[in-house]
C-alpha cells in the first residue's frame, strides 16, 4: 500500500525529531520515501512536509493530513488528524501523540525505533504519550474513513 501523508506543524525541534524517526522507521519497513516541503515565509512560519511512503507499485495512495499544531488551512481531506481530534493538549508532548497515530494509519510500521530512541534519551513522559497513542485506537469516524480508503485503494489497484 502507498501512503501520502501531509505533516503540518510549526517549526520545532520535536517535530524535526519526529520526522527523522518517522522516515527512518519507514525505510526500515522497506518503504521508499519521497519528501516534499512547502515554502516557509518566515523563521517562525509553519511548514508542511508531504511524505510519500511508497510500499507497492500500485498507483493509488491513501492520503492523510497529520496536523501537529492546527495550522492546516488547505482543502478539506477525509483523513485529518490533529491534537483536537485525538483529544490531546498542545503541550509539547502532543508531537509524540500525533506521531503515535501514524502507526495506526500505516499498520505495518513498527514503533520500535521511536520507542528505543525515547528510552535511550530518557524521555519518559514523551514515551508514555507515544505509547498511549500508538496503541490506542483512532476515533471511530477516522477508523471508518481509513477502512473505506483502504478498501477503495485495493479495489482500484
Amino acid at each position: 500500500m502507498n501512503y501520502t501523508i501531509h505533516f503540518c506543524s510549526k517549526l520545532s525541534s520535536a517535530f524535526d525529531t519526529v520526522m527523522k524517526l518517522a522516515v527512518e522507521t519507514a525505510s526500515e519497513a522497506d518503504y521508499a520515501t519521497k519528501i516534499y516541503t512547502s515554502q516557509s515565509y518566515s523563521p517562525f512560519s509553519s511548514i508542511m512536509l508531504d511524505i510519500h511512503f511508497i510500499g507497492s507499485a500500485k498507483k493509488k495512495a491513501i492520503e492523510a493530513v497529520l496536523d501537529f499544531d492546527g495550522v492546516y488551512i488547505g482543502k478539506s481531506v477525509s483523513l485529518y488528524i490533529s491534537p483536537k481530534i485525538i483529544d490531546i493538549a498542545y503541550d509539547g508532548l502532543h508531537y509524540w501523540g500525533i506521531a503515535g497515530t501514524l502507526f495506526k494509519i500505516i499498520g505495518d510500521l513498527s514503533p520500535a525505533l521511536i520507542t528505543s530512541y525515547l528510552l535511550k534519551t530518557n524521555r519518559e513522559r514523551e514515551l508514555s504519550v507515544f505509547k498511549q497513542f500508538s496503541l490506542k485506537s483512532l476515533p471511530l469516524s477516522i477508523q471508518e474513513t481509513l477502512a473505506l480508503m483502504q478498501k477503495e485503494a485495493e479495489l482500484k489497484s
Binding site: 501531509h6 503540518c8 510549526k10 512547502s38 515565509y41 518566515s42 523563521p43 517562525f44 512560519s45 509553519s46 511548514i47 508542511m48 508531504d50 495550522v71 492546516y72 488551512i73 488547505g74 482543502k75
Partner: peptide, 11 residues
C-alpha cells in the same frame, strides 16, 4: 495542488 499551512509572523 493548493495545500497550505497558516502563515505565521515573527513574535
Amino acid at each position: 495542488r493548493q495545500t497550505e499551512t497558516e502563515t505565521l509572523l515573527c513574535p
